[in-house]
């Protein structure tokens, strides 16, 4: 288990005990975290699981892959340097306490 903290656009926080190996997107969807849709189930086809990764975790989470980069470029409303698709972030012990912020809107 690792704790993942989801921050809603209004600043409210929700902490979830996530299963290691699940994606951050799956963790959010299974638990009904508003703001993460994950329409394609984690196949890099929809960009509806866009999140902003907290600066302190950026290096541990790493940069997006090529396909994800393309999806972020075209698929999301407000891309920032901290943007990731949460289906591509696997929950790991090393990410315990990870904070991700959900955007105002998903496409």
């Amino acid at each position: 288990m690792a704790k993942i903290i989801f921050v809603a656009p209004d600043g409210s926080r929700r902490t979830i005990d996530a299963a290691v190996g699940d994606s951050v997107m799956a963790t959010a969807v299974k638990n009904g975290v508003p703001g993460v849709v994950g329409e394609c189930g984690g196949n890099l086809s929809c960009a509806t699981c866009h999140v902003y990764v907290d600066e302190d975790f950026l290096t541990r989470v790493g940069p997006p892959g090529d396909l994800e980069d393309d999806m972020l470029d075209l698929g999301v409303a407000d891309r920032r340097a901290t943007s990731r698709l949460s289906c591509q972030i696997k929950v790991a012990e090393a990410l315990d306490g990870l904070i991700v912020e959900c955007p105002e809107e998903q496409p």
Binding site: L67, M71, D73, L74, G75
Partner: peptide, 8 residues
């Protein structure tokens, strides 16, 4: 393998 075209 052409996500940008698909998204556009």
């Amino acid at each position: 393998n052409s996500a940008p075209d698909y998204l556009a």
